[in-house]
């Protein structure tokens, strides 16, 4: 009786790309939940718009590139791109921001370079960066977090939807009245106006660790990230090196002059620090490949983030830091090939 033949190994682990992507999305649930608690349901609508756009763009690109739509469309990678961009945008940002940013990310940052696995730059960060340089004003329209210490801005689900879809607020509200700078932005502006750190910190938007609300969102992201580590979907090198380098830079500058520079805890719990460390820099496609390479790559992101936040033109620096280090990946990879078994030197 003839038996089927195949090449070894005859067993493989039940891990697939779509499972990896699915787990990453699950791990973002705490971040999304707390984001909604502090900033209202706007994020959920942004995510929906983002996912629809991402899937439509993905399907279009696959069709044009004559790839199997069935095999790739639901691999989850496009969904992650959409969710990450949505998390970076103000919750009431007009619909065309998320739609154009996501479409740009999928069509140009991903498929123009060859699709899944081939993109040298993190697509979500490309999409966000394009929005950031094109429409800086709209990207600063953040709401204050819904906490007891701050004036509450009540916007119903209905008004959230109409605001996002029409780009204009309901009659009884104005942008100036409801928007508020993010903690990183506020700190930067205040310090530039000559305030000391203590004066700048007096604003009620600052909490115990970082900005009110933001600190909890960052901690929720940390929880999701640690879960991903435990599930062995990501490895420790990138988050530890990025957060470590960021904390080290902040710690050194804080030690030199605590009146002018924010401390490491503030930096770790503000802006996109945790999201960057666990969900953005860890995108394996655009990251360095060896363990040592990843340490260097991620430490670079931490340092660049600190530099851009402290002396650069934008309140947060994670997106640009990631893209700058994406540029360096081929170089890092070239010089961090591990020593092979039985060889005296690294190749």
């Amino acid at each position: 009786m003839p038996f089927p033949t195949s090449e070894p190994p005859h067993v493989v682990a039940p891990l697939t790309v779509s499972r990896v992507m699915r787990l990453v999305i699950y791990a973002l649930a705490p971040t999304i939940a707390l984001h909604v608690v502090f900033f209202g349901p706007g994020l959920l609508i942004q995510i929906c718009l983002g996912i629809i756009t991402a899937l439509a763009a993905e399907a279009l690109a696959l069709r044009v590139r004559r790839k199997s739509v069935r095999q790739y469309l639901l691999d989850g990678s496009a969904v992650i791109t959409a969710v990450l961009i949505a998390l970076c945008l103000p919750p009431l940002a007009p619909w065309w921001l998320i739609v154009s940013g996501t479409a740009f990310a999928i069509l140009l940052a991903k498929h123009a370079f060859g699709g899944l696995g081939m993109n040298p730059f993190n697509p979500a960060m490309v999409g966000y960066a394009v929005l950031l340089v094109s429409f800086p004003a709209q990207l600063l329209q953040w709401l204050p977090p819904q906490v007891a210490e701050l004036e509450r801005v009540e916007i119903s689900l209905f008004h959230t939807v109409t605001t996002i879809l029409t780009g204009s607020l309901p009659a009884h509200l104005t942008w100036d009245a409801i928007t508020s700078a993010t903690p990183l932005d506020a700190l930067r502006t205040n310090l530039r106006m000559g305030m000391t750190m203590q004066e700048a910190h007096a604003s009620p938007i600052f909490g115990g660790l970082g900005g009110r609300g933001w600190e909890w969102i960052n901690l929720a992201t940390l929880v999701g990230g640690v879960w991903l580590l435990a599930m062995r979907i990501i490895r420790w090198q990138i988050p530890v090196a990025m957060l470590g380098a960021l904390a080290l830079c902040a710690g050194v500058m804080y030690a030199i002059d605590p009146g002018v520079y924010a401390g490491p805890v503030f930096h770790l719990t503000s802006g996109a620090s945790m999201l960057g460390a666990f969900f953005i820099a860890t995108d394996p496609v655009s990251a360095a490949t060896s363990d040592r390479g990843r340490l260097i790559y991620a430490a670079g992101i931490g340092v660049m983030t600190y530099i851009i936040r402290t002396w650069g033109g934008y309140p947060d620096g994670v997106a640009f830091a990631v893209l700058l280090m994406n540029f360096s990946v081929p170089l890092i990879d070239r010089y961090t090939i591990p020593r092979i078994y039985g060889h005296a030197e690294r190749p």
Partner: peptide, 13 residues
Amino acid sequence: QPRAAEMPCIRCG
């Protein structure tokens, strides 16, 4: 445990 459909390398390491 047979293989699923082959996807591009995502450089996960």
